[in-house]
Design a protein around this nucleic acid. Structure first.
Lengths: 111, 111
DNA sequence: TTGACATGCAACCAAATGGTTGCATAATGT
DNA sequence: ACATTATGCAACCATTTGGTTGCATGTCAA
């Protein structure tokens, strides 16, 4: 089990950091500079946020020359749902989510 | 979709509040007094934590006379995993978790 | 080689957070 | 009726958090 669950939750507690995860979810492997373009704050502030995400192992970093590429890691997120949702509850909730998703997709087709 | 995701993440960011969820996960419907017994802080501090959990809809309360009963609500947690884990990734991760769980249960039987 | 670009490091500051204490209110039981 | 029990509300305080600015370092390209 993950010994650094605390870092994960702390990292997810901030709107800006969640937005960074969203941005990476859409397009993985972006540089610091690219990520900065999505947030209305200084590069140094974004750097701090990314550092928290890295220590929480929510994003992984690969250096390419002078560029720092950021990748999303879904494992810690999944461990959260493992913690407080029972086996059967999970299946029930998943069925609900899938149903809702299906309805939304259908709605988009018609609209 | 949930419009108050922020409250959920803020609520989960604190170790004491996560412990409260763990305690409720083991035994649902406890009073404030009972919950206080599990944490090393004043009743007022616990009250504040529970208020955050309530506004995040992570716990639901029912009054019985002068007692306040607290119940765990798994829905917001599940919505977290919906946000950053793709459909296929989720199945893969779930298979991994189930495998790990199975191994641990087996180990416990043998030990 | 040198200038521009991508990033790191450190000091600083205002606001939010997590805890305390003290007092108030309402339900319970003898 | 009244002491006890279960909880709420408010003021206060130290620490953490999220942001800034200024400067340093390392890589690329002409």
């Amino acid at each position: 089990m993950c010994l650094e669950m605390d870092a994960v939750f702390k990292a997810l507690a901030d709107e800006s950091r969640r937005k960074l995860l969203d941005v990476l979810h859409k397009s993985n492997g972006q540089t610091l500079g690219e990520l900065c373009a999505h947030l209305d704050m200084t590069r140094q502030a974004v750097t701090k946020h990314l550092l928290l995400l890295e220590t929480a192992k929510l994003v992984t970093v690969v250096w390419r020359g002078r560029e720092k590429l950021h990748y999303l890691n879904p494992v810690p997120i999944h461990e959260i749902s493992e913690r407080w949702i029972g086996k059967y509850e999970r299946h029930r909730l998943q069925a609900l989510s899938d149903l809702k998703r299906g309805l939304e997709e259908n709605k988009n087709k018609k609209g």
